[in-house]
């Protein structure tokens, strides 16, 4: 238990020490809220879909979570390159404990980032349907964070170095984000897009946040949570399977 905790603590310390990383990763969400939130606002309203900023904010919160989470998972590659991974892999700790500690740490950090973006969205004019749902919303954020940290760890276990990083950003993270319900409503999409958005776990994460924050969902909250939980469980399992096979 203490061993899992120390891995968690390490992620937290590293995160809060890199102020530039925290501030840097707020730039993108702010840009999206400004450019898209205000830019598309009137078109959205005219189409009878209501306030776009309210619609967009949960998607942007989810975006900042998945970027931070996947990046935290991928940090395993840094640890391998800087050699610290060896130190942990030769120690009497099970790989599962290492994986759990790291994943919880990464997910905590990503959730924190999501909360920051939630506050920024409030400053930009996000109207919550009810403040009492903030806590459940944060729990959903944590679930999303857990899922994507596990994906990051899984990828990192398969890659030797950071060279594949760009590939992952362009062929995994960006598509996951753009092909979810983060930016546009999921009704009346072309068929192929409907299919893709339905198999994208992020769609369900965004939807759950949207239901809890602005009471405006596409699926139902219970379906969202179910899908997220099943995906998370599978990826944690897969992630630990591949993590166990790492040799240095």
């Amino acid at each position: 238990m203490q061993k899992i905790y120390i891995f968690w603590l390490r992620q937290i310390k590293k995160y809060f020490r890199s102020k530039s990383r925290i501030i840097g990763s707020l730039g993108q969400p702010i840009l999206f809220l400004l450019a898209l939130g205000y830019g598309f606002g009137s078109v959205f309203q005219q189409a009878g879909e209501g306030n776009y900023l309210n619609f967009l904010a949960p998607g942007i919160i989810a975006m900042s979570i998945i970027f931070t989470a996947i990046f935290s998972g991928i940090e395993v590659i840094w640890d391998r390159q800087f050699g610290f991974l060896k130190e942990t892999l030769a120690a009497p700790v099970s790989r599962l404990q290492i994986m759990i500690g790291r994943t919880l740490g990464g997910a905590t950090v990503a959730t924190f980032q999501g909360i920051l973006v939630l506050f920024i969205s409030l400053l930009f004019g996000l109207e919550l349907s009810s403040f009492s749902f903030i806590i459940p919303a944060i729990l959903v954020m944590f679930l999303i964070a857990l899922l994507f940290t596990a994906i990051g760890t899984l990828i990192a276990s398969l890659l030797e170095d950071m060279q594949g990083f760009q590939l992952i950003m362009n062929f995994l993270v960006m598509p996951l984000f753009f092909l979810s319900g983060a930016l546009y409503p999921l009704d009346n999409l072309p068929n192929f897009l409907t299919i893709i958005t339905k198999i994208n776990p992020l769609s369900y994460g965004v939807d759950a946040l949207r239901i809890l924050l602005t009471d405006n969902g596409h699926f139902s909250l219970s379906l969202d949570i179910l899908v997220l939980s099943v995906f998370t469980a599978c990826l944690l399992f897969l992630g630990s399977f591949f993590f166990k096979r790492i040799q240095v």
Binding site: Q2, K3, I6, R10, K13, K14, R17, S18, D79, F82, G83, F84, K86, E87, T88, A91, P92, V93
Partner: peptide, 20 residues
């Protein structure tokens, strides 16, 4: 080869090892 966590302090590296 190098095997320290450079973003932690010297003491944190020691303590981390001790806990592991």
């Amino acid at each position: 080869d190098p095997s320290l966590d450079e973003d932690l302090t010297a003491w944190e590296n020691i303590n981390f090892h001790g806990v592991l």
